[in-house]
Design a binder for these strands. Sequence first.
DNA 1: CTTTAAATGATAATCATTACGATTTATAAT
DNA 2: ATTATAAATCGTAATGATTATCATTTAAAG
Lengths: 145, 145
Amino acid sequence: MNHLKQQVLNKMKQNQLKITKQREVLIDLLIKHRDTYLDITKIDQLMRQTFPSMSYNTVYRNLKQLEEAGLLEQNNQMGHAMVKVICEFDHHHHFICQNCGIVTELKECPMSIYQSQIPGAEILSHQFVLEGLCQNCSNCKSKEN
Amino acid sequence: MNHLKQQVLNKMKQNQLKITKQREVLIDLLIKHRDTYLDITKIDQLMRQTFPSMSYNTVYRNLKQLEEAGLLEQNNQMGHAMVKVICEFDHHHHFICQNCGIVTELKECPMSIYQSQIPGAEILSHQFVLEGLCQNCSNCKSKEN
DNA sequence: CTTTAAATGATAATCATTACGATTTATAAT
DNA sequence: ATTATAAATCGTAATGATTATCATTTAAAG
């Protein structure tokens, strides 16, 4: 079994989350698409290929629980769609292609320059996202014209 | 009249947007709360104090048009609520207090260190948001315990 | 194998958002 | 000031996303 999947299943057990068939398919699906953010409705749709009569709640409930267990990241880029993606286990930032949705991880974190600007405040989290066109899509777009 | 409001009204005219009573109240409201992100449903609710029988579409349509005219910023921090705020006319980043929603502008932009990590990609936009507790709320929280 | 807490399914309710045609209104031209 | 007209609003309903509830099923521990 995939190493990432094993990590996820372990974390689920640590959080008293049972490994159900639905959840396993969900995890597989999230891992399969771990390099892009997925719309929740898209996830629901994909799940239904395996569980055609799945309850609406199931995806929402499980995504919420996985997120509470620290296994998912949320993001609302790319239009207004609400999307999620599996969590990587260390700190990083993303470049997201607006055309194909592929995610590139970035290496440096720009936090250090900011604390001094907001003295007394507790920084609990931060989100840093670059958007644009990846090399591939950038090339395609320029050929179109 | 407020200088910012004048700027907004001018930009609206440049975009062939008519100045209606509803829009003026909306603008006033956005300017009044320009230091926090507002949930759209909250905006709708506030508008209804002045226009109790306003059509549901009105807020959505106008926010969308103002956004297209470059007058609003969007953000989806703070839970899953969709929130908007009036645009400032120069580039900056934000620290948002998770407790009271107040926004502090940050001065430096960390973009320069990234282009080299994604060669060939076109960076079209970026979003950088810090979240946490402002000095005020941080103090209150520690008194609670 | 049994027990039990947790997850799912089925259904309906709620909330957010969009669609659409009739009416009203802001603006520009007369 | 009056009129013409394009745009905005209203009223209403439809759609889509999300949540609630409870009976049934199932994973996991003993």
